[in-house]
Structures are given as structure tokens and as C-alpha cells.
Design a protein around this nucleic acid. Structure first.
Lengths: 341, 341
DNA sequence: ATGAAAGCGCTAACAT
DNA sequence: ATGTTAGCGCTTTCAT
């Protein structure tokens, strides 16, 4: 293994080559104290020549701060999380923070251990996904006074800081749209609800809205599946083979809705003439499907950005609102239409 | 701002509470030296009670190592990178390394600065995407003796370590398939080639294979676009409106191919009767499109895994092959067929 | 405007 | 088996 000392230059090397003390180098490079212009120029030149890269570990230790934030998402595989985390990263970097990314795999134990790992790495604040987390994780964050914020969810009580929206409410809104179109028989294709409170709440939102008008969402009309297209296609077939078949299907995200639309194409079922399909998220390709997908535009990028702002504000001791509601826009496209006679 | 000292316990606190020296705590928790079983148990209990989390910055500094690896990808938005980086992370963690993720945004300057950032954070090795990088980046990595490995590309000369395949060769393979089906007029829809050598090589692979049989790929039959579906749909329309229209379209990835297939559906063009469409990557939904997509299965997960193994081996001073070729499987599905008469 | 020195939290010789 | 001590590379008082 190459010796680190020989191949990397440290602040000491820069100081020597510039003929100043390490203190001055630190001040010059960080702009953290007065340095004569001429000296500063010399130091910068030397640093560049030596490809000096300050070691974050040492800086963190000495500053007793890391200026870094952690973000944890369920999976890298779904692009809405990419949108959120990217916006989070951009805003954080703007505000002078470095971002550490972790993945929970939709598993609460993994989430907790990954969060601990983020804290070990110095994360001063955490952006979390959804509102349900291990008690022990919440306790840990509280006891260490680590600011965190739940996203894609809304905790109106403000018990836990959150940036997002009521998943129940938006699912209710979607359901109402279908009710208005005269639909009576509803199906739901939902992402696995194991450690996914957003999915669970969306199902519940449909159920409650239906109950409110005297309709009932029967158990066999609710099908959970993974993001694999093969599964959502199977789910669609299943709901369509019930008696009576569903005429309106709410999918808890656009991936599932895409599976449903594709399966409809394969089965020769006409959408929306025979069945209406509705999703959530508004992915890039949602307007391009045939038929294009009616969905709810979930503002992932804005949430990521707001989350970064929130955490930075808290770290600066600014007072902040503990519950920020984001607008979710209903996007009417072609995949929903009047209930068949 | 909360005082760190008051809310977080350090090794000292654990040592005191357990009635031992900090050295013993370190040894017990890291398993890095002999500790009486009974004492170890006591220490572990105390550590747990205090929610002691060792600070990585201090560990890194003291160990003069970070045991972490960096991975940089063009975007989080395309799921093939997620596959790769996830496999990389899993294997790295298995081997005792922590993974830092960075995004280059398909920009070589950003790539370089993000890599520097990874090095600052202690990355001991780097997984890169593609084979073309700034000279200054290569120089930096060399001068610091940081192992790195290019992926999704193959440098047979071994100048730069690489794990992947020849993009030219696989594009040639795809082209040959279409030639065998009798196609004469080829179109290419390609991802922007700015800082994307893989895309560029795939185009070149098509061109050379055609040249080898006396056919020519004309400039106007090659269209570059972003991953936005709107753009690839437009690109498809454009290639189909040429005179003569293309009968075989090679898309440099499945996203673009999806755009082409969707636009064909919208235009009422029959695939593959009127035009054959072929992609690269084999995404989850590629077999589910209508028609299902003929494509080349690029082994992203395997590359990520191999990259992690490679870097860890190098860090352990093991001798390694500098050029590992991965197999790319041709997947025949419905979107390609005989050239129309 | 600059430098000397203390110290961040931990690990790893080097004792014992 | 355990403790003492000297750093790791940097920032930050505190002097000058």
C-alpha cells in the first residue's frame, strides 16, 4: 500500500513551501482571518502546485462540526427519490453543506442503522422519507439534538417536523375525481405497505373517501405488489377478473400505473373506456404513455429543497415552521374517464 | 445550537462509566486487542446505554485510513446507475468499506470537483463511469496513488483499469442483428455525446459495422437527444420523416428506445413491421412494452460488484487484472424484425 | 498580520 | 490484560 505521507501534501507542506506558519495557511485558504494579499496569493499558488486537498476528517474534528447533512431514501431505483435527493444536495451545497446519501431498502432496521452510520460520519441533520420510523431512532436523534425532517408526509400536529402533504388527503382527492366520473367499483394497486406509510395512507385515503359516500372498498380489490412491472401487471389482471371487475383503479404510484396500462394494452382492455387508471408522482414518461396518465404531481424536488433549507435554518438556530405543507397538483390526462354503463 | 459535548458521549465517557481506560474501550469495541470477556461485556453494555457512536472523523484521522470508497455516476435519475452503485455499495460493505456517492451530471468539470470532494472525505478508491476523464483528474489520482476503475467501458490496453465491455463491439453486434434481418436504412437515436464516451462509441460501432458491409450511416440519420421522453419521441419522428425513412433504429439506451416505441404507437407506425427498434441496457420494463424491446443486457450490477472487489483487492495490495471484460447478452424480443419490402 | 500551542476524539505503539 | 502516551491534520484561541 502506498504510504499516504509521501503522496499527499498536508497543510504543513504548504506552509513550508510558502514560508509561513500552518495557521496562516489555514486562514488564507479558509478566508477565516486577515492575511496580507501578497502572502495569500503565494499560499494559494503553492497549494495549487502541490494539489493540496485539506482532509475533511481533520477539519471536522478540529472545527467540532462537519458541515454535512444526511439524506436517506428507500431506494435509488425510483427516480422520484433521485429528484428529491438531487434538489436536497444542490440546495445544501449552496448553503455550504456537504451531503451524505444512504439507502434504507424500505426496511426500518436498515434505515436506523444507516442513520447511525450517517451520524458517525458527522451528519448534523437528516432528511428522512415518510413519517414512520423506529422509536429508538427518534429517541437517538432527540437525545443528540440532531435536527431531522420527515418528507412526503405531513404531520399537522408538528410532533415530528415534516415537509410534504397528507397522503390520505391527496388519495381522497384522486378518489373524488373518479367518483365524479360516476365510478362505483374501485380497485387499488398499492406498493407494499410493510415499511411504507405513504402507500398505506393512500389506500386509507381511498377507503375513507368511498366510505364517506356510502361505498366500500373491499379487501380483494386492494392488491399490494412490488415495483416489478410483472407484478403490477398481474395485479391489474387480478382486479379486472373480480366480479364485478373494477372500473376505476387507483395506483399508489406511476410505476404501478404504468404496469396497469401496459397490461391493459396486452389484454386489449380499453383505457379509459372500460377502466380508468390513475397514478401518483407524475414521472417523466407519464404524459407519454398511451393513454397518457392522469396522476398527482408530487413536488419531489421542492420537498428536497425545502428540507435542506429547513435543516440549515435549524442548525443556525433560526426559528422554523415545523410543518410545511406542499401543494400536490392534480393532472388530468387521458387514462381516466366516465364509468362505463 | 446544542452543545455537542453535552449531548453526545465520547469514548472517554464510556471508559469512565465502565471503569477502564479509553484504550481498553477502543480495543473492546473494535475487537482489536485482548480484553477480558467480562470487561468487554461491561463496556459493550455501557456503550449501548450511552448510545455511544464512535466518531468517524477521529477514527479516520487516527487510523490514517477511512475504509471508505467513492463512486461517481452521471445521474441518479437513470436506474441502471442505481443498479450499479447499489451492487457496489453492498459488496463494499461486505468487504468492510463505507461508500460515498457523488454525481457528475454528465459534466467533466463537475466530475473532477466531485472526485476531489470524495478524496477530501477520505475515499481510498474510486469507481468511475466511462473511460474519458479530465487529464488533471487522472494525474491527481495517480500522484496520490488512489486506485480507481473505469466501468461500462473496456480499455484493452490496460492503460486505465476498466471493468466492462467494448461499446463499439456491442453496438456492432446489435447492428449485425439488424443487417441479418435485411435492413439497409439505419437510424441512430443517441444520448448526448458531450461527456458520454459510451454513447459516442456505440454510434461509432454502428457506423463501422455498416461500413464493413459497404453501407453508410449518414449524418442526418444520427440524432442526439436527452433522456426526456419528449425529445426521443421527436427524434424518432425526425428519423422516420427522412427520405428514405429508416427501417432500423438503434437507440443507445432503453429510455430512448422507449420514447421511440411510444412515438411509434402515437404515430400509428407498426413496430417491427414498418420499423425495427433496438435498445441497450434491458431495464425492468423493457420486456413489458408493446412490442417488447429487443436490447442488450448490460450487466450493471455485476460491474458494480466487480468494481468494489477490484478496488478492495488493490487496497490490500493484491495483484489484479487491469481489464475485466463483462459479457453483454443480446436479448431478442419483439421490437426487431425483418426489413419491410 | 502572523505564529505558538492547545486540543478535537480516537487508535496504536510501547510499556507494564 | 490493561494503561500511558504520542500523534493523526487541522482550526482556533491567545500572544505578539
Amino acid at each position: 500500500m502506498a504510504s499516504k505521507r509521501k503522496s499527499q501534501s498536508r497543510i504543513q507542506d504548504v506552509a513550508e513551501a510558502a514560508g509561513v506558519s500552518i495557521t496562516t495557511v489555514s486562514r488564507a485558504l479558509n478566508g477565516t482571518g486577515p492575511v496580507k494579499a501578497e502572502v495569500r496569493a503565494r499560499i494559494e499558488a503553492v497549494a495549487r502546485k502541490l494539489s493540496y486537498i485539506p482532509e475533511r476528517a481533520a477539519q471536522d474534528l478540529s472545527r467540532r462540526r462537519s458541515y454535512s447533512l444526511g439524506a436517506i431514501i428507500p431506494t435509488l431505483d425510483y427516480s422520484i427519490y433521485a429528484r428529491k435527493i438531487d434538489a436536497f444536495r444542490r440546495r445544501s451545497e449552496q448553503l455550504g453543506y456537504n451531503v451524505l446519501i444512504a439507502v434504507s431498502d424500505y426496511n426500518s432496521a436498515t434505515e436506523e442503522s444507516q442513520c447511525i452510520n450517517l451520524l458517525r460520519s458527522g451528519a448534523e441533520g437528516l432528511m428522512l422519507e415518510g413519517g414512520v420510523h423506529n422509536k429508538s431512532l427518534y429517541k437517538l436523534l432527540d437525545s443528540r439534538h440532531v435536527p431531522y425532517v420527515n418528507t412526503s408526509t405531513l404531520d399537522a400536529t408538528g410532533t415530528h417536523p415534516s415537509i410534504g402533504f397528507s397522503n390520505k388527503a391527496i388519495a381522497g382527492k384522486a378518489t373524488q375525481h373518479l367518483l365524479d366520473l360516476g365510478h362505483k367499483v374501485f380497485g387499488v394497486i398499492a406498493a407494499n405497505t410493510g415499511f411504507n406509510d405513504r402507500s398505506r395512507e393512500r389506500i386509507q385515503g381511498v377507503r375513507e373517501r368511498l366510505a364517506a359516500v356510502g361505498n366500500t372498498l373491499l379487501g380483494q380489490y386492494v392488491i399490494e405488489c412490488s415495483f416489478m412491472l410483472a407484478e403490477s401487471r398481474r395485479a391489474f389482471r387480478q382486479v379486472m377478473n373480480l366480479n364485478p371487475p373494477a372500473t376505476a383503479i387507483v395506483c399508489t404510484n406511476d410505476i404501478l400505473a404504468m404496469g396497469a396500462i401496459l397490461e391493459a394494452q396486452h389484454m386489449g382492455v380499453s383505457v379509459p373506456r372500460e377502466v380508468s387508471i390513475l397514478g401518483f408522482d407524475d414521472l417523466d414518461w407519464s404524459p407519454h404513455l398511451l393513454p397518457s396518465l392522469t396522476t398527482l404531481l408530487v413536488p419531489m424536488a421542492e420537498m428536497g429543497q425545502e428540507a435542506a433549507t429547513y435543516l440549515c435554518d435549524r442548525l443556525q438556530g433560526k426559528s422554523v415552521r415545523n410543518s410545511i405543507e406542499m401543494d400536490v397538483k392534480f393532472i388530468l390526462r387521458e387514462s381516466t374517464g366516465p364509468a362505463p354503463k
